[in-house]
């Protein structure tokens, strides 16, 4: 993988913060990568939602589960590699506990056509294997679709995932 190539930061932190606010998100439970991390200044300084930093992505799903059970509206934000790491935690809270949680998953290397990054190869198959309803966001014009996708998931009492195209990880 050529990390010298572009990083396409499709949305600014302010744009994402506006989406989260419109959705009523109270807590962003996250572990950054080089794309998602560009949102951090906006998310960390927002007074109306709390940024919860985790050490390992599996923690994020369980924290989000507790927040949801406690009446809050969390969203998990992590890279595709973190999705892979956190499979058992995801399985438990989404299927054993049956909680309709939201997540934004950074799709590492998707925007690098020549990339041989194995994280790119497995992101969509893994989401499908977990039977997750995901919206692939490839272009900035799709920003307005994010809220609608997650709201539809919540209305159906099912988890909702946004798979966000990224350049480098």
């Amino acid at each position: 993988m050529d990390y010298g190539q572009l990083t396409t930061d499709m949305f600014t932190g302010t744009e994402i913060l506006d989406v989260f606010r419109a959705l009523g998100v109270t807590h962003v439970v996250y572990l950054p990568d080089s794309t998602l991390g560009t949102w951090e200044p906006a998310l960390a300084s927002a007074g109306d939602l709390q940024l919860v930093r985790v050490c390992r992505e599996g923690e994020a799903w369980a924290i989000a589960a507790g927040l949801h059970m406690g009446g809050k509206r969390p969203i998990v934000v992590l890279q595709s590699t973190g999705l892979f790491e956190s499979g058992d935690a995801l399985r438990n809270v989404l299927y054993d506990l049956g909680l309709p949680l939201w997540a934004v998953v950074g799709y590492r290397s998707y925007l690098l056509p020549e990339s041989k990054d194995s994280a790119k190869r497995f992101a969509e198959p893994i989401l499908k294997a977990w039977d997750l309803d995901f919206l692939l966001v490839e272009r900035p014009e799709q920003l307005p679709l994010i809220a609608g996708h997650l709201q539809a998931a919540a209305a159906g009492n099912r988890p909702g995932v946004v798979l966000l195209a990224e350049g480098k990880g």
Binding site: E59, I63, A65, G66, L67, M69, G70
Partner: peptide
């Protein structure tokens, strides 16, 4: 971590 989420909520 479930407990932490509940504690924050």
């Amino acid at each position: 971590m479930l407990g932490l989420g509940l504690a924050l909520a």
